[in-house]
Design a protein around this nucleic acid. Sequence first.
DNA 1: ACGCAAAAAGTGATCGTTCACTATAGTCCT
DNA 2: AGGACTATAGTGAACGATCACTTTTTGCGT
Lengths: 342, 342
Amino acid sequence: MDGADTARRRPTITDVARLAEVSPQTVSRYLRFNGGLKPATLERVEKAIRELDYRPNLVARSMRTQKTGRLAILMPAMAFNPSRMLAGASATAQASGYFVDVVSAGGGVRPRSERLLELADSGQYEGILSLAPVLPSMENKLHQRTTVVISADFDDEMRGIGELADATPIVRMIEHLVALGHSRFFHVAGDGHFASARARRQSYLDTVERLGAESLGVFDGDWSGESGIEAIRSLPSDARPTAVIAANDLVAAGVVRGARERGWDVPGDVSVTGWDNVGVGQFMTPSLTTVDVDLERLGSKAMAKLIAGLTNTAPEPNDVSLFRIIWRESTAEPPPGSRLAP
Amino acid sequence: MDGADTARRRPTITDVARLAEVSPQTVSRYLRFNGGLKPATLERVEKAIRELDYRPNLVARSMRTQKTGRLAILMPAMAFNPSRMLAGASATAQASGYFVDVVSAGGGVRPRSERLLELADSGQYEGILSLAPVLPSMENKLHQRTTVVISADFDDEMRGIGELADATPIVRMIEHLVALGHSRFFHVAGDGHFASARARRQSYLDTVERLGAESLGVFDGDWSGESGIEAIRSLPSDARPTAVIAANDLVAAGVVRGARERGWDVPGDVSVTGWDNVGVGQFMTPSLTTVDVDLERLGSKAMAKLIAGLTNTAPEPNDVSLFRIIWRESTAEPPPGSRLAP
DNA sequence: ACGCAAAAAGTGATCGTTCACTATAGTCCT
DNA sequence: AGGACTATAGTGAACGATCACTTTTTGCGT
């Protein structure tokens, strides 16, 4: 019935002041910048703080200063693995002296947008970094009161697309494969609702055409391994690609599985590429060629943008690539006969 | 230079009261429970709130009520994929009316413990759920002021171990394999600093002995795929297990790779089991037998415990198993000859 | 010794809400 | 019709810290 209530009251700044025989204001001064205190006073205050094990009440401080020193990260529930991105973002924020909270919002765009508005107006956050898009109609209201940076990969008919949607590695992979002698490509795309999926799809189409290679088309999947298998099954028997560009590693694993099902050897008959550098990809047989995405840096950059907006500083430009292609066993030269095909 | 500062001042409860021609207290009453207001008054207040687009300042409210309605989740930076666990935990908390923030703390046990203490004393959280262990010395200080529930999987010489450390699925897997005719086992353990790794190791040893099966020993790995490969390489040429129990799917993938390297067929010569039900495991060849862990429920239960502690309610007992074994291609009957071995 | 500026410390008000009371109006019973 | 209640609304203080001032102390030159 009592239990937790046995706790004695938290000491306040006044308690410290009384013990140190100074005014609260002096203690406050000590807490905010260690200056303007006589050595003797300073010592008394320090001793009192230590003795009471005092820590300032941040809520009260926020109340007076109108600053919370806390940021929120709003993210879609159940996105792909966001933890690395968060790690980068929160490290950057902490370096600038901010607390970071991660608030997840389920549901679609609308409830998420409303949640964001609610957060922005709660007075608890100075800035909000949204890793998911919000309704354009909300955005106007938002920026009036709290700095909000939206850095969305996902997108449902929304304008800005984040850096994750950059699909240039697809271009480089296809170029490399063509140089190896590949001529017939096939793409298994991710869920078309995602900007990144659409960007990869488009990059695939553009690049294959630009290089004058043949495309057996695009299978519109949903990021799942099953879609990879189905994509291969859907190919007519006289159409065998020499290389399949999968939307991500999971799809790629499905593609490899599907190819084996049809008796095609990977990479002997077909090369396969993925995306994400999933842990086990390295140990599969064949190990998976993939794109490693520097999610930490991505998160860090997004957060840097938010902080820059908050302090009215210009964000430092940074054009280091976030992507790195890792070539592994699932890609090789095309089978000898393939070059002779019409 | 100005930019964000164009924002007009947020309306306060007093502004609303003035507009509605009532006292602030009346507005406050409206906000907390919609009762005790005359319909006419209620309507005036509602109208004023709508007109000003007023939202209560939660910091100020917290200040007065001494309740923040916010919880923090402290988690180790870079743990295995925590997002599913978080999803479960935050859903449960929100159902009880709490905000949930995720605060990540890098470094080891000590910095994490200090961070936790800091959080607990910041006055911003009513309860904290730590998914990582803290120093025992800190714990005493902690519980005096803020309810803290530590639900740690990881552990360095710490007492309580979380449910993740439950290794009974290992027992069931071995029993099943023995029933299939397997007789020579081998275990590749995870990092010994983790309670879960130690529990799985111990369950392996106990069960193999209890069933009178032969064990080729335990290789102490570190959860990595490389450790799986090395474990297989380390086996002398005359010692070939019929089944390998790997600490998780990544290790299992390494084991499969290592086995192939030595010319052993999986599952023809050796069966392999993993743990975690990683996405691609299903599409590997052979697809991976594994243990699916219901992380959502785990997170939800941990949070329920915290909330129960906060409200002095008894947590509802719940003994639904969090684990489910998924049998796939990587496990099968042992090779015929193996039964004849000494 | 004196004056005067700089350094150090203190005072009262305030941030936006809610709590514990008090005051007023409306209702019902005998 | 008077009194006892209940429903509704208002008042002043308080939560814990910091801000903008004011006051006291210290240091220094002449």
